[in-house]
């Protein structure tokens, strides 16, 4: 199946390592109660995703996947966290911890979701090859943990981080499926979506802070402070 110098076993183990790292980082995100810390952990997950995708590109001999890995690294590990960081700083909401459910029950629910996705995926995919099916189980775990984060947070920024982590799971699943077409296009489409969301939050938070979305108000505010 693979014509590289490394043994198939190693290919398998490294792919597992990265996919498992994504799930672990999803758990880390679940109990962050500061927005800055949350953004840092998210950036870490994006790096893990980039590594996982790059490994898949290598293992499957699919050079176009390097592009997806590159997008994950630059856009999701760098541009978006930095932009959100600045936004949080400017709006002064970095101490906001608005969780609907306490951390303990959330973590327990998270464990249950991971167990659920293992059971569903491993039972449903006996025919698929081992790498794909276990990658898929990890990917579904990341997706479900992202959803869990979206429903247990009230704050818009952390909801978006939840959504982006959900999307990391999707990209992991898409790159794990050998020879899946349109992966690069889909990751670009998602990046556009996320860019829109981030711009949206920016407007949204301005409304909460200044009671208007009029950009002039922001300019006035800036001018007043300078």
């Amino acid at each position: 199946m693979i014509e590289h110098a490394i043994t198939p076993n190693l290919v398998f183990d490294v792919a597992h390592l990265f996919a498992g790292a994504l799930v672990l980082i999803s758990f880390l995100m679940l109990y962050q109660d500061r927005l800055y810390a949350l953004l840092n952990v998210f950036a870490l997950q994006a790096v893990a995703l980039a590594l996982a995708v790059a490994w898949q590109a290598y293992a499957q001999d699919a050079p176009h996947l390097y592009l997806t890995a590159f997008i994950a690294l630059v856009f999701k590990a760098l541009v978006i966290p930095v932009a959100l960081h600045r936004m949080v700083a400017r709006l002064g909401i970095h101490r906001e911890v608005e969780t609907v459910v306490a951390t303990g029950p959330t973590m327990l629910a998270g464990i249950a979701l991971v167990a659920l996705s293992m059971v569903v995926m491993l039972k449903a995919t006996p025919a698929a090859d081992a790498l794909a099916r276990e990658d898929l189980a990890f990917a579904l775990s990341v997706v479900l943990l992202g959803l869990l984060m979206m429903v247990t947070r009230r704050n818009a920024v952390s909801q978006v981080v939840g959504f982006m982590s959900l999307e990391n799971g999707l990209i992991l699943a898409a790159t794990g499926a050998r020879g899946m077409p349109l992966v690069v296009e889909i990751s670009v489409a998602f990046s556009v979506l996320i860019a829109f969301i981030v711009i949206g939050i920016f407007l949204f938070r301005i409304r909460e802070r200044f009671d208007t979305v009029d950009v002039d108000a922001l300019d006035r505010f800036r001018g007043g402070r300078a």
């Binding site: 898929l136 959504f163 999707l170 499926a177 899946m180 979506l193």
Partner: peptide
């Protein structure tokens, strides 16, 4: 979220 779930389903169909 709906669209993300639909994508996961689409990936599964491909698999």
């Amino acid at each position: 979220v709906g669209i993300a779930l639909a994508l996961f389903g689409t990936i599964l169909v491909y698999m």
